[in-house]
Design a protein around this nucleic acid. Structure first.
Lengths: 341, 341
DNA sequence: TTGTATGCGTTATCAC
DNA sequence: GTGATAACGCATACAA
């Protein structure tokens, strides 16, 4: 059996409370007994049982991270930031993967609640009523949601302004002279924010360009989905000269497919994605894209969560802006000449 | 405050122990009182406090996952498999990122021990003495290491036979007719397994090819490192006609650099990587590589860990074989003609 | 400065 | 069938 504080106390010939004091650096303790206790700790290789400590103090110093798909490089970069920020503050993180399924989400969150996490960073609020309700509770974990929706989910949310991101992306294409711009869209349904679609539409509207609904095809955010969608879009005549995709994974597939059928990117087809995953920056891909501040998102969410736990004042609603990263997949218009790069 | 079993018992007018019985389905309980208790549970929205349960039962049903870099797609795919396998068995997973630093590793593992995880999946045994020692302990978490080293680390290990993987990769290049094959190697130092280097050397030996040490340059497994290494290697004359890299990230950079300076891949320079991260399979990259069975690795490690916890008999040393995935970055030799693809 | 005693929410071992 | 009660390992209010 692992040593307990009792063993330490016995070996050092002091009461448990005294041992506890030196271990936690709390209250008065003479140098002499402190030394004895420290010696005993060393000898027994004692590590405090934080389960017992948690039970007593009603704080586990751990937080849950709920994501759609940790295997996806986008989420894993956010997770990295969360883990780091948490560790720096002495918290550990329990990982829950939802695979985008409401049932797994519910079970996962239940588990986190049972495990008494102090807080949850929720980047997959599929069932937003659940999140809403949980964060309303007076007891239980503090909930911080990360979302592209404009309306906050729960009481503490990190909002990424997807609408503006999409708007800027499409504006960029319009400034380059494109007028027929296809959109590989986010999936339909209440569990998916539709802000990127809104941004796309607003951009066309403000430029007084017509909206051709057959140029908008729903994707699934997954590998394989971009390919299906672009095929559908390219059935239209005249062909669109540009494509905006709701995420990079689908955008990259669109580029690949276009090249397979003999279209040059960006000369024949300009492509802009969303997310800025590592892949987007590689030579040979060079995808222009709306960069989400992944590291910041994870970091800000964690900071907000922990400062709330510590009851420091902290903003409850933080908006982060994505930014357009221009690479070679959309070319640029030289004055008086054709689109090139 | 959240409801406790005490509240449930009170509301249902039974003793705590009775409430506990129905909640855990243990021991005899009349249908009538069972119903009353269940009603109370529902009414109070009671969730058992698993911290208290853990303290009593000395089992937390959670396990630690220690990785070098969760932001790296390679590790995140392994993590995904671990999370899934764990959840399916009722375990949750605590994530620890080491950033490849021995100190963070030690702190992280200490934390996991303090949090009383039942087991640790350790895919970053930088300090293998630490792992060795921890897994020797009679008490404390069960340790399962994942490693490319031939010698087991600790008592339970998932071994990926990197040596054979590298051997096969280089053999493939040799069969294609290459005789000057550069190697962007794993970093030096005791914390890095050198099995890939061994495989590379053995392959040359068995083919009776000379080993030119100026064609072997250490990389760092990171972004940026592949570029530096390939530059170094390409200073040699005559130029090598093929490059093997210890991971895909570096291999991809090698391809990029080669193209920048006007070398065609694979015609002028064949390239083979190691890992098979998602990126490798993309059109435009098409990297031939040694595929690590990422999903299997995570799954097998988790299974081994949990079955050990349940004291079922289970193999303590599992070897997994990587497999060569042939894509376009190394070309192929047509009989009687030049290397092409 | 140190020790005693209580309780955190459970489970499990007893009696009844 | 059911109900007291001890214990898990620790922190802490209070006494000494």
């Amino acid at each position: 059996m692992a040593a307990t504080i009792k063993d330490v106390a016995k070996l050092a010939n002091v009461a448990i409370s005294t041992a506890s004091r030196v271990i936690n650096n709390s209250g008065y303790v003479s140098d002499e007994t402190r030394a004895r206790v420290e010696q005993a700790v060393k000898e027994l290789d004692y590590t405090p049982n934080s389960i017992a400590r948690s039970l007593k103090q009603k704080s586990t110093y751990s937080l849950g991270l709920v994501v759609t798909d940790i295997g996806n490089p986008f989420f894993s970069e956010v997770a990295q930031a969360v883990e780091r920020a948490a560790r720096e503050q002495g918290y550990s993180v329990l990982l829950v993967n939802t695979d985008g399924k409401a049932e797994q989400e519910r079970d996962g969150v239940d588990l986190l609640v049972a495990k008494q996490v102090d807080g949850i960073i929720w980047y997959s609020p599929i069932n937003s009523k659940l999140a809403e309700e949980l964060s309303q509770r007076k007891s239980g974990p503090v909930i911080v949601t990360i979302t592209g929706r404009r309306e906050p989910i729960g009481t503490h949310t990190i909002h990424i302004n997807d609408e503006i991101g999409a708007f800027e992306a499409v504006n960029h294409l319009i400034r380059l002279g494109h007028t027929r711009i296809g959109y590989i869209a986010e999936p339909e349904g209440p569990e998916y924010p539709q802000e990127r679609l809104h941004g796309y539409l607003r951009s066309l509207q403000e430029a007084k360009l017509p909206v051709d609904h057959s140029l908008i095809v729903r994707g699934d955010y997954q590998q394989g989905g971009g390919r299906k969608a672009i095929k559908e879009i390219l059935k239209n005549r005249p062909l669109p000269t540009a494509i905006f995709a709701a995420n990079d994974l689908m955008a990259v597939e669109a580029i690949q497919y276009a090249r397979e059928i003999g279209l040059e990117v960006p000369q024949d087809l300009a492509v802009v994605g969303f997310d800025d995953i590592m892949l987007a920056g590689l030579r040979g891909i060079d995808l222009t894209t709306v960069a989400q501040p992944k590291y910041e998102m994870g970091q800000e969410a964690t900071k907000l969560l922990i400062s709330t736990l510590k009851k420091e004042k902290a903003s409850r609603y933080i908006t982060l802006l994505p930014s357009l990263v221009i690479r070679r997949s959309c070319g640029y218009r030289l004055k008086g000449s054709a689109v090139s790069w």
